[in-house]
């Protein structure tokens, strides 16, 4: 589904990703872990197409298409979803209105008819239950004045509505209390099926107790330096990132 090869990217001339290789197949959950500044969020942003990052080398194919050639909205329409680390506030635009626009533009892209109000309403009612969000959140302006937890839950709610092929959760666990974490994880697990895939970007192992990854990758200095199963995450939790650092130094040395 997703194939990242030797990806190098920089921002304002500063190289952040130094040759990332990653392959994700349908039905899989991948966790990308790493210390602060290792390039985790950069990788998520580059996948979504944020134009402040320049890709200097490498390739990304998504569903057999060249992802780097696609505009951010086309990536989204093809089924790539990014749950933002810092969801953006858009005053005056209700969550419902926003989602309806998104859903129908995606449907149009796929040659499907636009959803009418009733069907759409039914759809969102159903998805709301999944992330246990309140009705009032829908009529409030998008993320405007939302608490940190509400914003993150709203991201997962949007993911549920848009039903992406590949979802990237960028530090979705940061700032969440244990209840919210459980709700978010529950949403992700419920939505999981054999045709979609998820990349969980996180600093802590905590989230992975709830979303069990098939693969764990450690990103360090802009490269994936270690890959393994969920045991790797446990080990990281025990030994800390210094362990990787030492390891890395040894390898480099």
């Amino acid at each position: 589904m997703l194939k990242v090869e030797n990806l190098k990217a920089s921002i304002e001339g500063k190289q952040i990703l130094n040759g990332v290789n990653l392959s994700v197949n349908p039905g899989e959950i991948h966790a990308i872990m790493g210390p602060n500044g290792s390039g985790k969020s950069t990788l998520a942003s580059v996948l979504a197409g944020r134009d402040s990052y320049q890709v200097t080398e490498g390739s990304i194919s998504f569903l057999n298409q060249d992802l780097l050639e696609m505009a951010p909205e086309d990536r989204a329409r093809e089924g790539l979803f990014l749950a933002f680390q810092y969801p953006v506030e858009i005053p005056g635009v209700s969550t419902t209105n926003f989602l309806k626009t998104a859903v129908n533009q995606i449907r149009e892209h796929r040659g499907q008819e636009a959803l009418d109000a009733v069907t759409f309403l039914k759809l969102i009612k159903e998805k709301m239950k999944l992330v246990e969000i309140d009705n009032s959140l829908l009529s409030r302006a998008l993320n405007d004045g939302f608490s940190g937890g509400e914003k993150k839950r709203n991201e997962i709610f949007q993911m549920a509505v848009l039903e992406p092929r590949l979802a990237i959760l960028d530090e979705t666990d940061s700032g969440l209390d244990i209840d919210a974490l459980r709700i978010v994880a529950n949403g992700v697990n419920t939505l999981r099926n054999k045709d979609n895939a998820t990349i969980v970007v996180t600093h802590y192992q905590r989230l992975l107790d709830y979303i069990i990854p098939d693969f764990v990758h450690v990103l360090y200095n802009g490269r994936i330096v270690k890959s393994g199963t969920k045991e790797l995450a446990k080990k990281l939790e025990e030994k800390g990132y210094d362990w990787i650092r030492e390891n890395e130094t040894t390898i480099a040395g």
């Binding site: 197409g49 909205e73 989204a76 858009i90 005053p91 926003f98 998104a102 533009q105």
Partner: peptide, 28 residues
């Protein structure tokens, strides 16, 4: 904000529509 437009783009909304959406929100 560029970040507002990018956020809309990431949900599949084209830039022109994103602008219309944001302006309508601003004028709500």
């Amino acid at each position: 904000g560029e970040d507002q437009i990018f956020y809309c783009n990431q949900r599949g909304i084209g830039t022109e529509d994103a602008v219309a959406l944001i302006v309508n929100g601003y004028c709500k």
